[in-house]
Amino acid sequence: MKMNLDFCGIPMKNPLTTASGTFNPRAHADFYDLSILGAVTVKGVASTPWDGNPTPRIAEVYGGMLNSVGLQNPGAKAWIREELPFLQQYDTKIIVNLCGHTMDEYTEVAQMFRGVPVDLLELNISCPNVSAGGVTFGTDPKMVEKVVSAVKKEVDKPLIVKLTPNVTDITEIARAAEAGGADALSLINTLLGMKIDIYRRKPVLARSVGGFSGPAVKPVAVRMVYQVSKAVDLPIIGMGGVMTGEDVAEFIMAGASMVAIGTAALVDPQAPVRILQELEEFCDKTGVKDIQEIRGII
């Protein structure tokens, strides 16, 4: 059965990748061979180190979790020096997730990856725009087009734009990213959620609200991938609540070319191994010869 594909001109051995922020190369490499994946997507990297948010940063909720890690990262310079060589030992493509607080920070971090041997860049536009009063870049189509086209000018690799689901019409945002010059889209980022400790009468997270992920968000994610795949002409990395190989097939049928494993790999460090096996079993069972033949059949 054929699992490999071409994604933005990059050959991938299979359609599986990791979801940014739910994968740590060294931590996961203790549990499985990273080379089994088509690609790995690493945690958001900014132009300078970010400390992230105060604790508690994590809350467990029915069907998933909330996080307000706040994009803690060592900055692009340290990442390239300390983390990239470790990943380069593996036979898998490398996708680097980029974040910023301002237009300048986004273009700066994009420049820092010019000439760096990674395969694709994924622009996380779910960050608050500090110079625009903290509104999320990814919720305003004009801002999306602007930031995507500014970053696109700086990069020498295919640019994936990662969409936030916290919008009224995801297709409008997807079209704005396409207009800005995105080569691919990935969705969904986390849904904004909240949990209250009713005995302490306080939010569980120090920041009160956080990103909701895990199996409970899957129907929302599948719906959005489906809508976006009809609205734009770009390849998609689908994600949100993938726990099994069957979930991967569902995202591909909804229109995704590749699928990312997120919270599942936090709950079970070996989840990618199992999910890949289950996907192969599904294809076997249902007579799928090439995984891309079921893409967007819905």
């Binding site: 739910t22 740590n24 992230g52 604790t55 508690p56 940063r57 996080n67 803690q72 936090l266 460090p269």
Partner: peptide
């Protein structure tokens, strides 16, 4: 002790704040 997410080092949910030798703070 800190609230944890994955519990094996992948999610950065449980940072401890420490003083580094050069006086800066590290997580």
């Amino acid at each position: 002790e800190e609230r944890m997410g994955c519990g094996f080092g992948a999610c950065y949910g449980c940072p401890a704040k420490l003083k580094a030798a050069d006086g800066t703070t590290v997580l």
